[in-house]
């Protein structure tokens, strides 16, 4: 066998070998919002129609007092895994998919293109409680509830002197 024959015989094997050892990055998993889980949140939280007199988060945070009933509207920013709670962000804030240099951002729901301080100032926490404790179930998936969904929540406001707002919800309307 000449050396060229040798190479001809050998090259396919070498290529296979290289293929075996070569490392390849597995594709990044698709965005978290592809499959919506089912939520075990009790059905009585669901509001079929949007309640009237809803306030935006930014305004509500300046006006509300602790213990006051509230109807709050905004977009879902982020969920707390395993807990019936999520952060609601004022509709005036643009998520990454709406504008900005990171239009192609894979996780627009975390508003990663927005300054965190500005984002926190425009966000409130919505909780679904059983007595004093937040329910141990995912809120995501409840009547289509997902990142960046427009929702209106009815409940009682909990505020502190640091400007944080938590709403203990008794009803939620998810805009289709």
């Amino acid at each position: 066998m000449t050396s060229s024959n040798f190479l001809r015989a050998f090259l396919p094997i070498a290529v296979v070998g290289l293929g075996l050892v070569a490392c390849s990055d597995s594709k990044k998993s698709a965005s978290a919002s592809v499959e919506l889980p089912t939520s075990a949140l009790p059905e009585n939280y669901h509001l079929a129609a949007e309640p009237a007199n809803a306030r935006d988060v930014l305004i509500a945070k300046t006006e509300l007092k602790d213990g006051e009933p509230v109807v709050l509207r905004g977009r879902v920013q982020d969920f707390v895994n395993g807990m019936a709670a999520f952060t609601l962000t004022d509709g005036a804030l643009k998520s990454c998919d709406q504008e900005g240099p990171m239009k192609s951002c894979e996780t627009p729901w975390d508003y990663c293109c927005t300054d965190p301080a500005e984002l926190n100032a425009a966000s409130a926490v919505i909780e679904f409680r059983d007595g004093e404790a937040v329910r141990r179930t995912d809120a995501r998936g409840f009547h289509g509830l997902d990142h960046l969904k427009w929702v209106t929540v009815k409940g009682i406001a909990k505020t502190d002197d640091k400007g944080n707002l938590t709403v203990i919800a008794d009803g939620i309307y998810v805009k289709p």
Binding site: V80, N81, A85, P116, N120, E127, V134, N164
Partner: peptide, 18 residues
């Protein structure tokens, strides 16, 4: 490990602490 949700919730409630 389940209690990590409670900790995450604390972080959400205290948005001022970033």
């Amino acid at each position: 490990p389940d209690a990590i949700g409670e900790l995450a919730l604390f972080a959400k409630r205290r948005l001022d602490l970033e």
